[in-house]
Amino acid sequence: MESLFRPDMLLIILGGAVATYLTRIAGYVMIKRFKTIPPRVEAGLNAVPAAVLTTLVAPAALTGGLETAIALLVALLAGLRVSGLTLIAIGWAVAMAIRHFIL
């Protein structure tokens, strides 16, 4: 039986925690140094959530297999009408149906 906390794993967990907290405060600290934001910087900031979250979606269509790609495509279209858990349920159901009944 392994010990509860290994030193090398603890180093990664605590180092990762410090790195993550720095990412959570760094933007605030930087933005406080400016009085106003140039329009192009602001346009960039407004694009942040869509840009970052897209990178967590699009590659999955390549690496997750055909059923994931189709599920994402269906969810993309469904996302024009529904959101939240309904959307997740639709994407999940499509992928599971293809995985268990077709592939």
């Binding site: 959530p49 979606v57 599920a71 969810a75 996302g79």
Partner: peptide
């Protein structure tokens, strides 16, 4: 599949 679909919903 849940993770990418969840993020897709946020993007939408």
């Amino acid at each position: 599949v849940l993770l990418p679909v969840y993020f897709l919903g946020l993007v939408m």
